[in-house]
Write a protein that binds this DNA or RNA. Structure first.
Lengths: 223, 223
DNA sequence: GCTGTTGCGATTGGATGCAATGCCCGGTAC
DNA sequence: GTACCGGGCATTGCATCCAATCGCAACAGC
């Protein structure tokens, strides 16, 4: 039943699994993570589990307290705004580097994603397609530092986007779809300046909307 | 001789020590890091050493290869340029948030640092004072995400700044000093827009100068 | 002389066991 | 009733031990 994994991959396996679970929403912010549990679930011992937790801590996804335990990181509204402000500055740069490298088929796929998004009204689908859309716009470059940074920023805020998504009204959704279509259009036109500034505005607007919903950051009741 | 450290701090202790050594230049890029050696040096066992290496890997300071070993990370010219481009966008933002929080005494200290820098002509002193200067300009805010990001970007590029510093001629140094003084001036005037754009130009110029010295990124001979 | 191979030593990866710490709960004093 | 204290248990932190892997060097074949 347990496929024999290769030697030297246990830590990465555990980290990948937990990261994925956090992003997927299976482990919401504040969730306690117990080493032994994780070890059992992943079929590893506690040593690679602990290394994985250190990795996730450095990524900002997990918070470790010495001699006490590990929890899925929570963000305050302020910290989340900080991340969005960084994204406002950094993602347009990444888009600038990526845009010229996006092939026709990828642009078609972006358009399709934007279309599917506006067709569906399931918040979880919105969340997933939105993420897929933006991250796909960043696949036109092989820059590693910048791409990695942006992925991390997305990961850290994913849980809060998930909650916020459920609060969006039709008008807010419409605006997002419009912006997405405009961004694809600018990319098609090779108007990278326009794409960059559209994206900056897109993120900035989202940040401000998020700021008007502080209830997103209320710590959920223990249950 | 070995002061009894508190329980639960071994990993952090090892990580701090290695990070400091990398920044100080004691471990240049490409240096092999052996677990047992480190364990002996720090008085810990290999378990916390391995956790520390994972942390440093996530910070980009160390490169781990499974079943093979750990090395101090090297940057290509391209990767370094990437980091500088990120810094160009992100540090002005941090300065914007920090500037209003800088007290009079801190501004005086910044001026003193800039002065000491232009007085000395030792490259190592230049390096250290430059770092101290910029990081001090970021102490006026309690933002944690952004501050941490900027520190990491500085850490990853420190080794290359060290090499480049030795290649700078008088004109290049003069320019740096002038820019530093202008930045302090703008901060004193509470002209945050000016400070931001001066800083962006400062980083951008450095990036371009660095790009014209690709020899900085040549892998040193094995020794 | 050069190339491919095989075995050994060095090093890393992971599991287990024990020590240290913190938390929770019951008890007690006020 | 509340606040403080102490002990047991759950959990984490770390050291030791063993297995897996890699690199290198000696050797055999051509």
């Amino acid at each position: 039943m347990t496929p024999p994994r290769e030697h030297g991959a246990a830590t990465a396996h555990v980290a990948d699994r937990v990261r994925e679970a956090i992003i997927r929403g299976a482990y919401p912010p504040g969730t306690r993570i117990r080493q032994e549990e994780l070890a059992e679930e992943t079929g590893a011992s506690r040593v690679p589990v602990r290394e994985a937790l250190r990795v996730l801590e450095a990524e900002g996804l997990v918070t470790l307290v010495a001699n006490t335990g590990a929890w899925v990181s929570s963000l305050s509204l302020g910290e989340c705004q900080e991340i969005y402000r960084v994204r406002e500055r950094v993602e347009p740069l990444l888009l600038r580097m990526s845009g010229p490298g996006l092939s026709g088929p990828v642009l078609d796929e972006l358009e399709a994603l934007a279309e599917r998004m506006s067709a569906s009204d399931d918040p979880e689908a919105f969340l997933e397609l939105d993420r897929a859309f933006h991250l796909l716009t960043y696949t036109g470059t092989s820059t590693v530092v910048l791409t990695d940074l942006v992925h991390r920023l997305w990961n850290r805020t994913q849980a809060y986007r998930r909650v916020y998504t459920r609060l969006m009204d039709d008008r807010a959704r419409r605006t997002v779809h419009d912006e997405h279509r405009l961004i694809v259009g600018a990319l098609r036109d090779h108007d990278i300046d326009a794409a960059e500034s559209l994206l900056a505005g897109h993120i900035r607007r989202t940040r401000r909307q998020l700021a008007s919903h502080p209830e997103v950051f209320a710590a959920p009741e223990e249950g």
